[in-house]
């Protein structure tokens, strides 16, 4: 059973196709990653899922029913560019956002205070938002995203602009929400974060879905041809070797992509023969980054120039 189904979403701005016939499914209870570089169409997709944009085509289905206001009420949304009313007081801000979701009264008030206490903002509850530090404003924004106890949490590039403390805090919230059985959808261009957090992903590039599914399955499918290597020595001879398709240097590790899946042992033997000190040889591992580059990397410098601004 899928919690959300995105069916054939298309959105065009002027002549630019921002999202092109995108379809994917978000399973119940999953942490779902929407992955792609900046301008790939992630925000536009999310905005269409939220009903902020009307799609040119396609629809979003929530547990069998087309999304509408009920979905909005069940979502906590943290957009990439976050904002609060500067002149509003901290507690008032939280209560207002909850009220817009149809939650008001003593219970929400109590929960708001609990969250404020937990995030060490309780003493500031009567301060104006503009008097808070940027980090505290971010905390306030997190609280407002989850205060109404949404079934779905949608985070657009959640880690952009966060300091390390708040990054951890947000991760904590996400894990906690997952444990409560909520569906978490987030978009990011940071592959390693996605890799650590998500169990399902969809990869989007130039508005098109280029990959989707459970992270484990995707990785096992792609890992067979890939070797993750840590070494000392010179491996430049591999570049012209007939069994090697490509080599990618990621700093600490090097990814070697083979032409055939069964050539890993052959590669290891070759390295030893050439006196390369092999510190780590993982023939069953591939990073999301590598998969992404394999699928979309040929135009990594964005030469096409068809980036979608936040419109």
């Amino acid at each position: 059973m899928y919690a959300l189904e995105v069916k054939n979403l298309t959105k065009t701005f002027d002549k630019l196709v921002a999202v092109d016939n995108a379809s994917f499914e978000v399973p119940e209870g999953s942490i779902f990653g929407l992955i792609g570089r900046n301008g790939a169409g992630k925000t536009t997709t999310i905005r269409m899922m939220m009903g902020i944009y009307l799609p040119d085509n396609g629809e979003v289905v929530l547990r069998g029913v087309k999304v509408g206001q009920e979905f909005k009420n069940e979502v906590g949304y943290l957009p990439e560019e976050r904002g609060l009313y500067k002149k509003m007081k901290v507690l008032d801000t939280l209560l207002y956002f909850a009220e817009l979701k149809g939650k008001s009264g003593r219970e929400v008030h109590k929960r708001a205070e609990e969250y404020l206490k937990r995030f060490e903002l309780y003493d500031r509850r009567l301060s104006k938002v503009e008097d808070l530090s940027k980090g505290n404003q971010q905390k306030l924004q997190f609280i407002s995203t989850v205060l109404h106890e949404p079934e779905f949490i949608i985070l657009d590039e959640p880690y952009s602009g966060l300091d390390p403390i708040n990054t951890n805090l947000l991760r904590e919230i996400i894990i906690e929400m997952k444990q409560k059985g909520k569906v978490i959808i987030f978009s990011t261009h940071l592959m390693d974060f996605a890799e650590k957090m998500c169990d399902h992903i969809v990869m989007i590039d130039h508005g098109k879905i280029i990959l989707k599914g459970a992270l484990k399955e995707i990785k096992s499918k792609y890992s067979q041809k890939n070797v993750s290597l840590t070494y000392d020595g010179d491996i430049s001879f591999l570049k012209s070797n007939p069994i090697v398709d490509s080599i990618a240097d990621y700093g600490n590790t090097t990814g070697v992509k083979l032409k055939e899946a069964n050539q890993a042992q052959q590669l290891l033997r070759m390295l030893l023969d050439k006196n390369v000190t092999v510190k780590k040889f993982d023939a069953n591992d591939i990073s999301l980054q590598e998969i992404f580059i394999e699928l979309a990397g040929h135009e990594e410098n964005g030469t096409s120039g068809k980036e979608v601004r936040n419109v």
Binding site: M50, G51, I52, K72, Y77, E81, G83, Y85, K86, L100
Partner: peptide
């Protein structure tokens, strides 16, 4: 202008039309 400038409008639009 303030709502637009401070980007709060997107948060609001996730709740109301």
């Amino acid at each position: 202008i303030e709502e637009k400038g401070s980007k709060i409008v997107e948060v609001i639009l996730s709740s109301v039309s």
